[in-house]
């Protein structure tokens, strides 16, 4: 991965973070501006979280494919914890949940690590579903049976299955590359993460600046049609500018991918907002200061990763 494009990409992100940190620190030291100090504080906390995330990511990239898959698996595990914690379960679900956490989730990531697309693409949605249904039925508690099993399934699909496609990107064989697992694959993953996070930020910025019509005010008052359109367009632009970093794409293809990723990310954010609104909470957890929970950070990624994976496959797969 020691090629010029990877280095350029990493240097770019590092520069962006440094500039943002400098601005944040300046604003914190000179509070006489017309800015809200609480917003500045939130911004700085968010940046600190960003530094942590980037450091962990860089370390995983450095250590190789398997480490990155394992890291992704841990993130899934933690996201699923947060998801199930917020979802009321009954005692009858206990044994099913145990196997979901300690057998199905790890096994799925083992299949991802060995690049068995034929198996990992059906393992959780098919066999995971069958198992959860049967195990909860065997526990003998039939109250709100479908509702309870659906919750566990939704958690598995969103937190584990969808997110694992980000790790699976590392195994896609790209036309023109002689092997998979090359620097090009890491750049592809990095490209996805960058687009998703950028789309999140842009959605926020556009909604603040020009947001008038919320998509669903009952679910989220800060997610607007203007934000969605603005973020999709900006992300498409960024993707087109950075097309050189993502190996298989032409500029116009990269723009299209950026657009789709932004829309999917928006869908993920809306979905998690709906769940949180239903449970009456704001954030999912307290792991990284200033960043809510893990699930709050990866919700857009969960929805964007499978689509990005398949688009890459169709455009450039062998």
């Amino acid at each position: 991965m020691n090629d010029i494009r990877t280095i350029a990409l990493i240097a770019g992100v590092l520069l962006l973070l440094l500039v943002a940190t400098a601005v944040g620190q300046f604003l914190a030291r000179n509070p006489d501006r017309s800015l809200n100090p609480a917003a500045v504080n939130a911004f700085n906390l968010r940046l600190r979280g960003w530094w942590i995330i980037c450091t962990v990511l860089a370390a995983a990239f450095w250590l190789g494919t398997t480490t990155t898959v394992v890291l992704c698996g841990l993130v899934s595990f933690w996201a699923l914890r947060e998801f199930i914690t917020l979802t009321p379960t009954r005692k009858g679900d206990h044994r099913a949940l145990f196997w979901v956490f300690f057998l199905f989730t790890p096994l799925h990531y083992v299949l991802v690590a060995y690049n068995r697309y034929d198996l990992f693409s059906v393992f959780l949605p098919l066999y995971g579903t069958l198992f959860v249904l049967a195990r909860v039925a065997m526990a003998g508690d039939y109250k709100r049976f479908l509702e309870r099993t659906a919750k566990i399934q939704a958690g598995l699909v969103v937190c584990v299955y969808c997110l694992s496609f980000a790790a699976a990107l590392l195994h896609v064989r790209i036309r023109g590359q002689d092997t998979a697992n090359s620097g090009a694959n890491f750049r592809l993953l990095f490209f996805l993460i960058l687009l998703v996070q950028f789309a999140d930020c842009m959605q926020y910025v556009w909604s603040r600046m020009a947001g008038r019509r919320p998509v669903a005010p009952e679910v989220s008052s800060t997610r607007t049609w203007e934000g969605l359109l603005g973020s999709a367009t900006s992300t498409a632009l960024l993707a087109a500018v950075l097309w050189w970093a993502a190996p298989p794409f032409e500029p116009w293809q990269a723009a299209l991918v950026g657009f789709v990723v932004a829309v999917m990310g928006f869908a993920g954010g809306m979905t998690m907002s709906a769940i949180k609104r239903d449970r009456g909470v704001k954030d999912y957890g307290t792991l990284v200061v200033g960043h809510g929970g893990v699930l709050d950070r990866v919700d857009s990624m969960c929805f964007a990763a499978p689509v990005f994976y398949h688009l890459t496959w169709f455009v450039a797969g062998q």
């Binding site: 914890r81 947060e82 199930i84 914690t85 379960t89 206990h94 044994r95 145990f98 956490f101 957890g285």
Partner: peptide, 18 residues
Amino acid sequence: DNLNRILPRGEFLPVPLL
């Protein structure tokens, strides 16, 4: 809070919630 869901009475295998 929530520990009764992690290891309820009568169970011996924990579910790692928060």
